[in-house]
Structure formats: structure tokens, C-alpha cells
Simulated assay, not measured.
Amino acid sequence: MSTLYLDHSIVTHPASWTPVDEVLTNGKAQLALSLWNLFEIGSASDRAQQDQRLTFLMKAKPLWILERVQIERREVRAFLWKEKLQVAPEPIDAFRRHLSEVESFMVGSKTRIGVTPRQWIDTIDFKRYAPSKELAPTALRQLQTLGPKKVAERQDEIFERWIEGLLPTKLPDGSACSKAELLEFSKFCLDNQAAFYAACPAMAVENALTRARTATASRNPQNSDGIDLMHAVVALAYCDYFLLRDGFVFQCCEQAHKELAGRPLAAVFRDAEDLKKALP
């Protein structure tokens, strides 16, 4: 079944819920959520409001999609295994049936079997993450300051820094990668960027979205930009439909569609009624 990803701008807009519910209950799409959906719900201080939003989403029995970085690590590993090491890569399965499966990639042995969205939210210290929200706008401002020409001149450096934390730390036989092997992996990706982006959907989408988000030098990046990217990357790269109300994010998604024309990206809608009408 086709998958539908909802941006938080839809979750906070009850007027969108009825048409979304009709799409889901009529079997036209399967709801897919990420931990970032829960993070944004839990960031609101009104617990009753949180519960109302969770009730709306959970009655659809959603699939859970892995967090952006987890998906991108799998993409990079699969690319290197296949193209450099000539080893059949593990399939990139972005979706999981249970929330605990997604949590396991974040906390390992501390995973709570059967954890519910309410339980997950209740264990997060949201104040702890407040400083991290400033990282994305700070990075965007730096790129805006450089301008397209200087960014292009330093593209290789930016690329290497970007994928540094996404490179596999183990070889196919399970042994740890040496520093020399990690350098070889990085250089191989750098030297084969066209093939790299062709094989790594989330990486290609993030690359395109970043350019779109820094194209307007006069725009002042917001603290929400980081989480917006988390939603948009997984939605565009791995889902069939992406529903949102945020005009800037929609604009960036349209630009990514143009840049990545011909690739199977999620169809993007700004209105729930339009989505309902478009689905067969």
C-alpha cells in the first residue's frame, strides 16, 4: 500500500484531520510516522493536546520510518558494499511495524519492547534538546553568507564533512574499519558522486533541499528548520505522499522535485482535501 507521511503542520491543524482520516480508513494509503512526529507533539506543553493528537494518529496503526541519519547510513553502506567492495548489500528497509524497533536503533539494549508513543514522549527531556535546535539555522546562515559561488568552490570539502559520520564502521565480515579504510571509503564516495546520489535517495534529497533552503539569502533561518528537514528528507525519499501546510517547506520540496526530476519522490500536497481528491 502507498505510504502517507504527515508533517507536524498537519498534526496541529484539526481541520485537516477529517480528510486525512478518510484517506486512511478507506485504505488509500498507510500512515507512516517518525520519531520526529512524536518529538514535535511532545514539545507542546499542553498534555491534553498531546493526547488528542496522538489519538488521531495512533488509530491509523501507523508504520514507523527510521530516522534520517539511520537511513542515510544504510544507504552509504549499501553503496560502498556494492560499488567498491563488490559485496551484495543488505536491503534498505526504512519502515518498521513497531515503535520499539525504531527506538532500538537509538538506544540499543535499553530498548523497551512494546513502548507506546505516550511512553516515548514521557521519557524525553525536551529542554535538553533546545540548544541543538540552533545548529541548523546557524549552518544555513553560514551557507547563505558564503553564497552559491563559494559553496560550489568548497563543495568537495562540504561533502566529505557531511558523510564523515555516515560511513560504515565495520566491513562486511564484521571486522572494524581502519582509519585508512574510512579514508578510502570517503574518497570513493567523493570521486563517484553521481553514482553515489543515484544510489542514495535520502542523501540526494537532503542535498537538493539544502540548496533550496539556502537559495534565498534574505531569508532568516528558523530553529524549526532542522526538524523540517528531518521530516522532508524521509518523506520525499521513501514515502509516496507527503502532506504539509508550511509554505517554505513546500517550496523547497518543489525545488527538490525539479532538481531530481525522473526520480521516484513522494507527491507533495499542501491541502488535505486536494490529497483526498488526488488518490484513486
Rank of each mutant, 00 (worst) to 15 (best):
E72Q: 15
S218P: 05
E153P: 05
A278K: 09
A195V: 02
F56E: 01
Y129W: 09
C177D: 02
K84F: 05
T210F: 11
Q255A: 15
E75H: 02
P148G: 12
P201L: 06
S175N: 01
K84E: 07
I121P: 02
S16H: 10
E103V: 11
S43L: 07
E160F: 08
F185C: 04
L190Y: 08
C239F: 04
M1Y: 03
A208T: 01
V234M: 11
A267I: 11
K84I: 02
R53K: 11
Q155N: 14
Q30V: 04
S104A: 15
A208I: 00
A267K: 14
S43Q: 12
L229E: 10
C239I: 04
V233A: 09
A232M: 03
C200D: 02
L275A: 07
C252E: 11
K110C: 03
M230P: 01
D122M: 08
L265T: 02
E101C: 11
L182P: 03
A88N: 09
G247I: 05
G108W: 10
H257E: 07
G27P: 08
E184I: 06
A232I: 01
E103Q: 15
R77D: 12
D225S: 12
P280V: 08
M58L: 14
H98A: 05
E181M: 07
Q86Y: 05
H257L: 05
V11K: 11
H8T: 09
T169E: 15
C189A: 13
L171Q: 13
D271S: 12
L229W: 01
R118S: 11
A266T: 07
Y5H: 04
R263V: 04
R68D: 11
L190C: 08
L143R: 15
M203F: 03
T18A: 13
P89N: 10
T123K: 14
A88Q: 13
A256N: 09
Q86E: 08
F196H: 06
N192I: 04
E184C: 04
C239W: 04
A261N: 12
R245W: 03
I71F: 08
Y197H: 12
A199E: 05
P131M: 07
W17V: 00
R161G: 13
L236W: 09
L209W: 00
E259W: 05
L146C: 06
A232K: 00
R161W: 03
E103G: 14
E184M: 10
